[in-house]
C-alpha cells in the first residue's frame, strides 16, 4: 500500500460514511451534516485526481451554497428530530436488495472496461484549462446554462414580487 492509496482510502471512507449516514440518520439536520462531510471527502478526491477547480467548485456550490439552503429550510421549518413516521410502503423494503444488486451490476459493467493504468494527468482540472474549454469548446452549453440561471433568477423575482401586485 502506498501513501497515496492510504489517503484515497481515507477520503473514500469519508464519502461513503457520509452517504450511509445521510440515509440512516433520522434527524434531518444531522443528515445535512453527513452530506457536507461526504462532499468534503468528494472534493478531496477530485483534488487527488488533479481536478483542483472541480474540487473547489464542489465545496463552493454544494457544501457552501446548497447545503446552506438545506440547513436554512430545516431550521426554519423546525423539523423535529424524532418524528417516527410509519413506513407507508412496506413492500418497497423488499425491492431494496434486488435494486441494489442491479445498480452494482450496472456499475461493475461500466467500470470493468477501464484500464488500470490511467494515471490522472493533473492538468485537465486546473482553472486555466477549465476556463479555456468553457470559453472555446463548450461555449454554447456554457451560455445556455447561464441563460437558464438567469431565467431562474427572473422567475424567483417574479414569485417574490407577486404578492404586492
Amino acid at each position: 500500500m502506498t501513501f497515496q492509496q492510504l489517503l484515497f482510502i481515507g477520503f473514500a471512507a469519508l464519502v461513503l460514511g457520509g452517504g450511509i449516514a445521510v440515509v440512516l440518520l433520522r434527524n434531518p439536520l444531522y443528515g445535512a451534516f453527513a452530506l457536507i462531510t461526504s462532499f468534503v471527502g468528494l472534493s478531496a478526491l477530485y483534488v487527488m485526481m488533479g481536478a483542483q477547480f472541480i474540487g473547489a467548485a464542489q465545496i463552493v456550490v454544494y457544501a457552501g451554497a446548497i447545503m446552506m439552503l438545506f440547513v436554512f429550510v430545516i431550521m426554519l421549518l423546525n423539523v423535529r428530530a424524532d418524528e417516527e413516521r410509519p413506513p407507508r410502503h412496506r413492500f418497497l423494503v423488499w425491492l431494496a436488495a434486488p435494486l441494489a444488486l442491479l445498480l452494482s451490476a450496472g456499475l461493475w459493467l461500466a467500470v470493468a472496461g477501464v484500464q488500470g493504468d490511467r494515471a490522472p494527468s493533473g492538468e485537465a482540472g486546473t482553472v486555466e484549462r477549465v476556463g479555456k474549454n468553457l470559453m472555446t469548446r463548450y461555449l454554447l452549453p456554457f451560455e445556455l446554462t447561464s441563460v437558464l440561471i438567469l431565467l431562474a433568477v427572473v422567475g424567483a423575482l417574479h414569485l417574490a414580487k407577486r404578492e404586492k401586485e
Partner: peptide, 25 residues
C-alpha cells in the same frame, strides 16, 4: 502554493458560515 488558492479561501469561508448558523440554532 496551490493553483486554486483564492478560490480555496472563498470556498472554505463559505462553509464557515455553517458554524454560526448551527451554533445559533
Amino acid at each position: 502554493n496551490i493553483n486554486i488558492g483564492l478560490l480555496f479561501i472563498l470556498s472554505v469561508s463559505s462553509v464557515g458560515v455553517l458554524g454560526i448558523i448551527l451554533g445559533g440554532w
